[in-house]
Computed example of a mutant assay.
Amino acid sequence: MALWLEWQIKVYVLMVSLCVEAWTSAATPPNSTLAVFEQWTARHGRIYVNNLEKTKRYEIFLKNLHFIEDFNKAANRSYTVGLNQFSDLTTEEFHARYNGLQPMSRSSNSSAATTFEYQNVTQVPDSINWVDKGVVGSIKNQGSCGSCWAFAAVATVESGLAINGGPMLDLSEQQLVDCSKDNGGCKGGWVEAAFQYIKRDGITSEQNYLYKGVEGDCNSEATLAHKVTIQGHHNIPVDEHLIEMAVAAQPVTANIDTKSVEFRSYSGGVFTGPCGRQNLDHSIVIVGYGRSNSDGLNYWLIKNSWGEQWAEKGYMRIQRNSGIREGVCGINLAASHPIM
């Protein structure tokens, strides 16, 4: 009976794949897409609860696969897209699981410094890469917890400490998720509120307070062994040149819109959109800037918290000097950095 049921499910999956192939214009031959899907699930460790769920994910995967093929065939692209760990998700599912920013009104944030620290800088280098300088921590993975705000805040504090002569520490995002009560844990939060918490209570190491990817009770005993505090933070005015001045001195956080399929499928090159510029949903860290040798586009180098399987080993180059006040994906709208 079990073998008969398994055979029926295989036939059903095949019928679905053929139906989907009939209305798409993919370059991949129909008889190979199921094999591609099976290879993808094995690589990413996907185990579905039942075959109906697997069939649903296969349909979504096919749509994403065909989008990727069609996009990469087009001429004059400055970036490519590809399969990654998000390729069996819809846009809505992805947004619900892997973002987590809740934008804060800066006008109500009285604890932020009112002057821009680097306003008197007269000259900045043509390019800078803090990763190459050895003061950026490893790429981490927030998982399906909406804790991007915690990862962005922690990354800039780690870098700020190292740039100012301290050790390159691995600090605890989980402490912020559990203990920063002005934030929403895995339901989202604010980088500014994370900075306020670190200023007030300090932050311990990842080793002392391991990341679990779920919100729990604050482990007050672990927080007593805090390693780092900050003096406060600066909010950078909405001005690309001023952000450039700040990044020339240290990595900074920024908020962006990541809801497009192009963004989550990005695999390399200089990302130019499409994406929104107002409804920001994700926090990242700008760890450098430069100019692409292949097409001459200026870019920001951003560090993300979606693991090394995404994009350029966890990093993205996103267009700079685009002529858009808000910046591509709104990257200019809410940049900030800790004051060490």
Results as ranks from 00 to 15, higher is better:
10 K>L: 13
14 L>K: 15
15 M>V: 13
22 A>D: 12
30 P>T: 06
31 N>I: 11
33 T>R: 15
39 Q>R: 14
44 H>T: 08
49 V>H: 08
57 R>E: 06
59 E>Y: 12
59 E>D: 07
59 E>A: 15
63 K>Y: 13
63 K>M: 10
64 N>W: 07
70 D>N: 14
72 N>Y: 12
74 A>M: 13
76 N>I: 07
77 R>D: 02
80 T>Y: 09
86 F>A: 01
88 D>Y: 03
90 T>K: 02
91 T>F: 00
93 E>G: 07
96 A>K: 13
100 G>Q: 05
103 P>M: 10
106 R>G: 10
112 A>Q: 05
116 F>N: 06
118 Y>P: 00
118 Y>D: 09
131 V>T: 12
131 V>A: 05
135 V>P: 06
136 V>P: 09
136 V>Q: 02
141 N>Y: 12
141 N>K: 09
154 V>E: 07
155 A>Y: 03
156 T>Q: 02
156 T>N: 01
165 G>E: 09
170 D>K: 14
172 S>W: 12
173 E>W: 04
177 V>M: 05
182 D>K: 14
183 N>A: 05
184 G>E: 02
188 G>V: 04
188 G>A: 07
189 G>N: 07
189 G>F: 10
195 F>N: 04
207 Q>E: 15
210 L>G: 06
210 L>H: 13
211 Y>H: 08
214 V>P: 00
215 E>C: 06
217 D>L: 11
218 C>R: 09
229 T>V: 12
238 V>N: 11
238 V>D: 06
239 D>Y: 07
240 E>H: 07
242 L>P: 00
247 V>L: 04
248 A>H: 01
251 P>A: 03
252 V>H: 00
256 I>D: 01
258 T>M: 00
261 V>I: 14
266 Y>V: 01
270 V>Y: 10
274 P>M: 07
276 G>M: 06
277 R>K: 11
280 L>P: 08
280 L>H: 08
285 V>F: 01
290 G>N: 07
297 L>I: 11
301 L>V: 13
301 L>D: 04
305 S>E: 04
308 E>H: 08
312 E>M: 14
312 E>K: 05
320 R>P: 01
325 R>I: 11
326 E>I: 05
330 G>P: 01
340 M>K: 10
